[in-house]
């Protein structure tokens, strides 16, 4: 009796092993936020690639479908889904790719990269028919989702709103720019362009909202409203446009390495998480000004300290003192 029971158990476990369903694992080299692949409008027609690998078996006569869908993944791909691959054999891995453009074309109401103006998401799916039972390798009539992780390709065609510049604070060799209107997880980009020369050269156009060559006092805040007049001819830049960027929510963007006394045109734009760029903000002007810290004041007053080499020698001496402290403490621990 015992022998019969053991034989039955062994037989049953073999049967269960035979009906282990397939499972697909997706990976991608695309930039993701968790399992979401963000696609900006500019990349609408650029293929998004995924690698896949699978384990387990298909039910007899069954297929593994890899596809992109707007709905859930636990079914056979429909007419509005974008089929990527159909696997009927024992192929264990591969790659699939598709463009958002292709997926948009199959929507119930098809759109294009140009006409799709709102955000839309697509699920990367893998589905296969389930086994009839744990003892039966034939296929049932129902499908199940077998892919993981649940990648979502999110198409974000909408650029961020045009930002505004709240303040430009003149600093020594720098401008500190407050940009308003940036959404979270976006990047603020500030572009500065010299409009005057270091020797006080004049602007080509005197009609700008801020007078040409005007030196903005340090600490003076230029209101966002103080922009170049609409309709006026923007002054011609006399230098290259420099770009500075910072994550939104991390405070003012500091444009440094500028020349004191030179007036700069300042504009900002926002790049959202997907990579869409906003229009440039209205232009504001700012002029870095020299300020004096303690060392400036000290040297101006005739102080003879010049730092420099003494710092190196002193650093060695200070390091030696600290090393002595460490050795002494180490010795103390051994004693105790």
């Amino acid at each position: 009796m015992r022998l019969s029971l053991a034989a039955l158990l062994l037989f049953a476990s073999t049967a269960v092993a035979q009906t282990t369903g397939t499972a697909v694992t997706f990976t991608t080299t695309s930039t993701t936020s968790g399992t979401t692949v963000l696609t900006p409008k500019a990349d609408c027609a650029t293929p998004v690639r995924f690698s896949w690998s699978r384990t387990g078996n298909l039910c007899t006569g069954g297929s593994l479908f890899l596809f992109v869908s707007r709905s859930s993944c636990g079914s056979e791909p429909g007419l509005t889904d974008l089929k990527l691959a159909t696997i009927t054999d024992t192929t264990a891995s591969g790659t699939v790719s598709f463009t958002v453009q292709d997926a948009l074309a199959l929507l119930a109401t098809p759109t294009t990269c140009a006409t799709q103006t709102s955000e839309i998401s697509f699920n990367l799916c893998a589905s296969a028919k389930t086994f009839a039972s744990v003892y039966d390798a034939s296929c049932s009539s129902s499908f199940s989702s077998v892919g993981s992780p649940a990648f979502v390709v999110k198409f974000d065609p909408a650029p961020p709103s045009k930002p505004s510049i709240g303040k430009v604070i003149a600093r020594d060799s720098a401008l500190s720019v407050q940009v308003d209107g940036a959404e979270t997880k976006s990047t603020v980009v500030v572009e500065v362009t010299a409009l005057t020369t270091a020797d006080g050269g004049s602007l080509p156009d005197e009609d700008a909202g801020v007078d040409a060559g005007e030196v903005v006092d340090a600490g003076e805040v230029l209101d966002a409203g103080e922009v170049l007049d609409a309709g006026s001819v923007a002054p011609e830049p006399v230098g290259p446009t420099l770009s500075f960027r910072k994550a939104a929510g991390e405070g003012n963007v500091v444009a440094d390495g500028l020349i004191n006394g030179v007036t700069y045109r300042v504009q900002a734009k926002i790049i959202d998480e997907a990579g869409n760029g906003s229009d440039l903000s209205d232009a504001v002007e700012g002029t870095p000004v020299k300020s004096n810290g303690l060392f400036d004041a000290y040297v101006d007053a005739g102080g003879q300290e010049r730092g420099g080499c003494a710092a190196t020698g002193g650093g060695i001496a200070g390091g030696a003192v600290l090393a002595a402290l460490g050795i002494w403490l180490s010795n103390r621990r051994k004693v105790s």
Binding site: I169, A170, R171, D172, S176, D217, A218, G219, V289, K290, S291, N292, G293, D296, A297
Partner: peptide
């Protein structure tokens, strides 16, 4: 605050 040439406070 650092000081400007005229002695007023700068933003730095």
């Amino acid at each position: 605050n650092a000081l400007l040439e005229d002695g007023t406070q700068a933003a730095d």
